[in-house]
């Protein structure tokens, strides 16, 4: 198993938009490696010829008819937003 290093921890954190301190990075590295080591046990099982598991119970995906049944509650949708105006979410400027 490949060990996770601190640089990888920082990279994952950045991709997840999490701000972590150097101390966090060190302890998260240990935790992640422990988790990966635990999951690593699975590789002991021989899965040759076994189809990938896509469900834990034998059931088919539920499907919906193409009917509008939801929406029209803009005020509720933005209610918890830190900032909103005229039912828009307002966020720090993001522009290319």
């Amino acid at each position: 198993m490949q060990e996770v290093d601190e640089a990888t921890v920082r990279r994952i954190a950045r991709l997840a938009r999490l701000e972590i301190t150097d101390a966090d990075a060190g302890s998260l590295k240990s935790e992640l490696n422990a988790i990966l080591k635990w999951v690593e046990q699975l590789s002991a099982v021989d899965t040759k010829g076994v189809e990938a598991m896509t469900r834990v119970v034998s059931m088919r995906m539920k499907q919906r008819d193409d009917v509008v049944t939801d929406g029209e509650m803009a005020a509720d949708i933005v209610k918890n937003a830190p900032m909103a105006e005229d039912n828009f979410f307002v966020v720090p400027k993001v522009v290319e």
Binding site: T69, D70, A74, V78, N87
Partner: peptide
């Protein structure tokens, strides 16, 4: 008429966040 995974409308030009579930 409705979105891929929700029952909200796909109609164009509606007021902001009105077609949101």
């Amino acid at each position: 008429n409705a979105k891929l995974f929700s029952g909200a409308s796909t109609g164009f030009g509606a007021p902001p966040n009105s077609h949101v579930s």
